[in-house]
Design a protein around this nucleic acid. Structure first.
Lengths: 121, 121
DNA sequence: GGATCGTGTCAATGGATCTTGACCCGAGTT
DNA sequence: AACTCGGGTCAAGATCCATTGACACGATCC
């Protein structure tokens, strides 16, 4: 009977990859970064791969690019996250507030105990 | 060393699949469902596939099972969502509150106007 | 006890996805 | 103009993931 029908959602797909999440984290930390900047922060991943992941993120609307001369600066976009948050809030009804509180507390803990989404070095 | 490396992120992986999100939605709607119950709600997907997806969700801690006789009832678990929310809040600093507000509003709109995470081009 | 139902799990197949190397374009540079 | 550098894109190989069918196991019913 009723089929559920999927939702091929770009945001979830975009968040499903370690590299892409790392890119988002880096953009969050540094505000704007060029492709080479980003690529140089990964060891096992080349510029082409980063560029392709940026394409995925771009298509999903999660990053925006600003061209300046021969450089292209990438930065975060917030809107697509609504899709994710909306899904989560629909799962748990109106309890997202408390979840958010817990999440923020937990992210503070992470900061104290060790990086979880990486970075650095 | 300079590696970014990710956080094994079971939750993100779990959310990356249409079928799994649909399962989560169904569990959210109905509270508890058996595997057969779930499988019967999909057209193009068999019981085995649903069972496998449940294994993924189980391993990610996003669902819990309650055994009653020969049935196994599955229901949602909230904790793993912290990983997702924590990531999002780390991306946007402390602005998750406002995002949550927007998301809830938007989910209300969705209920009235129609689904929004169906399309992606 | 044997049959049957509800599920989990495994091996194998098919398909989607990520990464790479090569090539092309636009923008500065000499 | 020719050259160099930053980036995007394509084809192809590699890798991962999802689905399926077959089999196993506990629980219930006859």
């Amino acid at each position: 009977m009723g089929q559920i029908s999927g939702s091929s959602s770009g945001a979830f797909d975009a968040l499903a990859d370690d590299t892409r999440r790392a890119v988002l984290s880096l953009l969050s930390e540094h505000g704007e970064l060029t492709v080479s900047d980003l690529a140089s922060r990964f060891d096992h991943i080349g510029r082409t791969a980063v560029s392709m992941q940026l394409k995925v993120l771009r298509d999903a609307g999660m990053v925006q690019e600003r061209r300046a001369g021969k450089y292209r600066y990438y930065s975060l976009r917030v809107e697509p996250m609504n899709e994710v948050l909306s899904f989560l809030s629909s799962l748990y009804g109106t309890s997202l507030d408390s979840l958010a509180a817990v999440a923020e507390q937990r992210s503070a803990d992470d900061n104290a105990e060790g990086p979880r989404w990486g970075t650095s070095s």
